[in-house]
Design a protein around this nucleic acid. Structure first.
Length: 445
RNA sequence: GGCGCGAUGGCGGAGUGGCGACGCAGCGGAUUGCAAAUCCGUGUACACGAGUUCGAUUCUCGUUCGCGCCUCCA
């Protein structure tokens, strides 16, 4: 078995992955703040680390991997949205949590083992803050609980920022209650009309970083194997998680840190003003194929930037079309081809793995191709479902078949003007005809 | 300014000290009434300049260009 190699952000190099306990490999990925639909950039870490989850399960056994992905369901952005709509935060968070789950399912992402929510971990948060205060790593000030950064000797080793650099490069005003400009919030007070929970420091709500530390502590222990997320989370989010957990526990928090690169759209940063903002929800609703979206996100290596465009999605759709044609009626092989597992074991080299799948694109190796593609969360439908779908838009299967029969009648009579007219009619409906040796088949474009 | 990443053919994207991965698109052919699908064939690609070497796209140094982060952000 090829060992799994992982690029560890902490070490800035690829390392051989050794789990703490092969019977319980623990992976945590930072999940969404549920205040709006997830965009395609949010989907990248989900798809990428879903691939990691699949690989870990393949190597260590399905029941030996715990994968947690949280929902941040208390946050100022959620509060803002709730206030806008005049509803409670739970209405907002539940709505977008539900949408998120559906969207990620459309991308063939497996359900994580655990999906903890911030608001379900208030007791753990309070306990951790108390421990940090007792150990001199945190203090109370004007209803806030602050983490005192200078109290941690090696703060900043993940992002390789020294406290001094952070203070010097800071773009935000320093709140007056901070003992040190680099200190960050663990707990902040809530006004009467804001959501809040009782605490020894008054009614308030948690800062962003605290939840992950507490959820990991509760569900996975003081030290976990892998913690992953977008590279923008390296600082401050993950740096501060390390500070909280390691100062509270006195133990290593995470052995391997993984961070995915950014996604651009048509070569530019995705933004609403540029008109290139794509939510997964809208992409699926407008007819883009979830599996093609997934494949598009896997065409680049996860640490590299990936450029997203609709033309890429269509291109990858055609690639899948080819694989579906080849594997029609073929039973997937029992084992996943080693070349594909090896590529993925090398720091999740998905472009390599995909090209290894292409190398199997031959009738003689169709069963292997199918096993490999399914391992990567692709070819999850039957060939028939893929090409024909549940129901083509604006035309019934019966109508299609009647038109095909009429066309074949015309063809038999050499009335090609009529047969081409019928084919054009179907093309307009998004139906492509394929004249085979015996019969005429059809598929959705 | 600090930290970090990258530059491969029309596009995407592996990889390697010496034989032009792979996919998509394009082009030619087979097949087809015509298409579609399929099959066969088809490309003087490795940012620039030095250095190391018998030999560098691959290693070293430099240059240029592009990108990300530096307390909203996957």
């Amino acid at each position: 078995m090829t060992p799994i190699r992982i690029y560890n952000t902490l070490a800035r190099e690829k390392q051989t992955f050794t789990p703490i306990d092969p019977k319980n490999v623990r992976l945590y990925v930072c999940g969404p703040t549920v205040y709006d639909y997830a965009h395609i950039g949010n989907a990248r870490p989900v798809v990428v680390f879903d691939m990691l989850f699949r690989l870990l399960r393949h190597v260590y056994g399905t029941d030996h991997v715990t994968y947690a992905r949280n929902f941040t369901d208390i946050d100022d952005k959620i509060m803002l949205r709730a206030a806008d709509e005049g509803v409670g935060i739970k209405t907002i968070s539940k709505r977008y949590e539900k949408a998120y789950i559906a969207d990620m399912k459309a991308l063939n992402a497996l359900d994580p083992t655990l999906t903890p929510r911030a608001t379900e971990h208030l007791p753990q948060m309070i306990k951790m803050m108390q421990a940090l205060i007792e150990k001199g790593h945190a203090y109370e000030a004007e209803g806030h609980v602050m983490f005192h950064v200078p109290s941690m000797e090696n703060y900043g080793r993940l992002s390789r920022h020294s406290r001094d650099e952070l203070v010097a490069g800071s773009r935000v005003e320093v709140a007056p209650y901070k003992r040190d400009p680099a200190d960050f919030v663990l707990w902040k007070p809530s006004t009467e009309d804001q959501p809040g929970w009782a605490s020894p420091w008054g009614r308030g709500r948690p800062g962003w970083h605290l939840e992950c530390s507490c959820m990991i502590e509760k569900h996975m222990g003081t030290t976990i194997d892998i913690h992953a997320g977008g590279q923008d989370l390296i600082f401050p989010h993950h740096e501060n998680e390390i500070a909280q957990s390691e100062c509270a526990h006195g133990e290593t928090f995470v052995n391997y840190w993984m961070h995915n690169g950014y996604l651009t759209v048509d070569g530019e940063k995705m933004s609403k003003s540029l008109g290139n903002f794509h939510t997964v929800h809208d992409l699926i609703a407008s007819g883009e194929n979830g599996e093609a979206l997934r494949l598009s996100l896997l065409t680049a290596h996860y640490r590299q930037p990936v450029d997203f465009s609709l033309s890429t999605v269509r291109e990858q759709k055609r690639r899948l079309d080819k694989w579906y044609r080849l594997t029609d009626g073929v039973e997937a092989a029992d084992t996943v081809p080693a070349a594909v597992v090896d590529a993925l074991s090398d720091d999740l080299n998905t472009p390599k793995a995909l090209s290894e799948i292409d190398a199997l694109a031959d009738v003689a190796t169709a069963a292997e191709l199918k096993a490999a593609a399914q391992f990567m969360g692709l070819l999850q439908s039957s060939t028939d479902e893929w090409f024909k779908g549940d129901a083509p838009d604006g035309i019934t299967v019966e109508e299609i078949e009647e038109l095909i029969a009429a066309r074949n009648q015309a063809r038999a009579e050499k009335n090609f003007a009529e047969s081409d007219r019928i084919r054009d009619l179907l093309t307009e409906k998004g139906i492509v005809l394929e004249d085979g040796a015996g019969a005429t088949g059809w598929r959705k474009a």
